[in-house]
Design a protein around this nucleic acid. Structure first.
Lengths: 353, 353
DNA sequence: CTTCAGCCTGTTAGCGTTATCGGCTAAGGG
DNA sequence: CCCTTAGCCGATAACGCTAACAGGCTGAAG
């Protein structure tokens, strides 16, 4: 039943209906054990009768707790950030928190700080930052410490706890996989220069090649999009000796696959390709893509746990890594035997218009 | 400069530093014209000096306005909802609103109402619902009208304004395109039964076929995933007469393409395929996918505008459609001439293991 | 019977902000 | 010269809730 008068019921209305004081109603809601069962039942009945909902603003004003946490994020349209955000929200809800978001449309020097500021003005209890950029890391450094903050996929040199996938380890696995297949070296289509993820993958890839004493080809820079993967792929097919490519995400890998096919290079017979992320579609690429799976869900949950620790004033050391996993499908295969029977002809110009 | 004592500055601190009353400070912040320029300057200086930030909870408590709006959404991991959410947030921010989210993990009868409830308890000024399900529509019907609510992609028979893409029109375009290419009829791989989008697309598709007097093949139900598209695609290749397929989203279309290729059916020579959504990757499928573009950004902005109207008590009639657009790429082509020279051999069993 | 502890409930006083009204000053009109 | 008006500012009282303390009641111990 709705409130009798127009306006929604407040604590006092419930108290009067139940014949108790306002304080008792408050207690029933916040510390039920402290009130006698019979009284409690009467109050609860009144609550239902009036369809009473506590006013969060008033509660927050007096307790200082808002029960809301903020997520500032870059481009939640991308699969990774979107998935991370989703799982943060799930975890937060189960712990009784609501989440407010601030999406950054661009990432110039101050926009991240401004996002945090907006959330803080809202009175959030804590903030999770999903903006794996170098420049975001900059912004993080001069953040006032009043509000607990944790970051997702940020660098190691920032003053807040970080939940991240071990990008380097993922790249290492991808590169070693390719080497173990007999390829002499591995080309790399990387993400944008200011993305930490992109750089972590470069480091892992380069490390393996150097350690194995292999030549390190020049990096090709993409922007995560299939379009850029395609364009870079066309540059790759111009080099007949390219036999293995590690692409920094699955979308770009899709573009690379297409460029390869258009040039008449077979995958994996002529060229092996590894992606990164394991988006749900990549198992249905042609051929199904070997890639490195990132568990974004785990990252989201971990980030939330770190924030919770932080908000409860727990040890601030926690800074953990989520392990990525190589999932081998059909886009990688043994290197063609050098000088083998099957000529590695570069069919330049065979590309259909 | 931070506040001198530990705790953050409040209105009164500013007032004392500026030598005015609290009320004057409040006015400077909310109605600057009402205070003399010289006083205003003094107050503003004090605000900066103390790094004063108004307490939103207190403000909300007294004004009743929160400046926050809520979005309840199903699976923000999907491209459509994620993009819509992103643009809602952009629009909201520019209008000075913050946004809180409530993601639904499942959509049983009450979960949507519960999501709205959670947001309302937070004191949001309005709610946008992104949950294009039949069951969501049910939940919408018995929503108390205290908080303004608008929906995205909902049915026409619900009591709130709706911003949506004209799914039917999109399906009509896709189907007519296929028919105009000479195909006798068009198969349809649909989305889940309780998704309104899925049903709108079915209606458009069926309408065109019936109007043209063509046979209406049985619908194949998927779940939006590439995996389901693949499985359904394998059912399709078992029918040699399938020459044109309209798939309800691009991810499933990817799966269908793969099943077709595995069975040795060429696209578009043997089978034409049209998708829906135009995700960024679909231009790089093999072959590039003909599809129907939905402007999710426009939908998000429109939804926000409708909500704003609603919150300001404007006319509640506004219920507008965003037009989808057919983008023709290379996955559709002329139907093979019936009984033509090029045998339409169904190479069942040619699928590589 | 008194006393004291322990449980339950009520009273009071804010939390930080804005609405409302009223007062003060200075300028303008009669 | 007084009265009005406009412009600016201050005092006070909410907004709805909870923290902290102050009782009242019960039953058991002395």
């Amino acid at each position: 039943m709705r409130s009798k008068s127009g306006r929604p019921a407040v604590l006092m209305d419930v108290a009067m209906l139940a014949g108790v004081s306002a304080m008792t109603v408050s207690r029933v809601l916040n510390a039920p054990d402290m009130v006698r069962a019979e009284t409690r039942a009467r109050v609860l009945a009144a609550v239902r009768e009036l369809d009473y909902r506590p006013n969060q603003a008033a509660r927050q004003l007096v307790t200082g707790r808002s029960g809301v946490l903020g997520v500032v994020s870059i481009d939640t349209t991308l699969y990774g950030p979107a998935t991370t955000l989703y799982w943060i929200e799930q975890a937060a809800r189960h712990a009784g928190y609501n989440v407010s978001i601030a999406s950054l449309s661009s990432l110039n020097r101050g926009s991240m700080e401004e996002g945090v500021e907006r959330l803080r003005a809202q009175g959030v209890a804590g903030v999770i930052i999903v903006a794996p950029h170098e420049s975001a890391a900059d912004g993080l450094r001069n953040l006032s410490p009043e509000t607990p903050v944790v970051a997702v996929d940020a660098g190691d040199d920032i003053p807040v706890p970080v939940a991240k996938v071990d990008q380097r380890a993922g790249a290492v696995r991808a590169t070693k996989h390719l080497l173990s297949l007999g390829h002499e070296t591995v080309w790399h289509v990387a993400g944008p220069a200011d993305w930490l993820d992109a750089n972590g993958r470069i480091e892992g890839w380069r490390g393996v090649l150097e350690e194995a004493g292999r030549p390190v080809p020049e990096i090709l820079r993409g922007d995560w999009s299939s379009r850029s993967g395609y364009e870079l792929g066309r540059r790759l097919v111009a080099e007949p000796e390219v036999g293995a490519v590690f692409v920094a995400n699955d979308q770009m890998a899709l573009g690379v696959l297409r460029a390869l096919r258009e040039a008449g290079r077979r995958v994996p017979e002529d060229v092996s390709v590894v992606g990164f992320d394991d988006i749900p579609e990549s198992a249905y690429f042609w051929p199904p893509l070997t890639t490195v799976r990132q568990d974004f869900g785990e990252v989201g949950r971990l980030a939330f746990r770190l924030l919770l620790d932080r908000m409860e004033g727990a040890a601030p050391d926690a800074r953990r890594l989520v392990e990525p996993e190589l999932v081998v499908r059909e886009s990688t295969g043994a290197a063609p035997r050098p000088g083998g029977t099957r000529g590695r002809q570069s069919r330049r110009g065979a590309k259909p218009a």
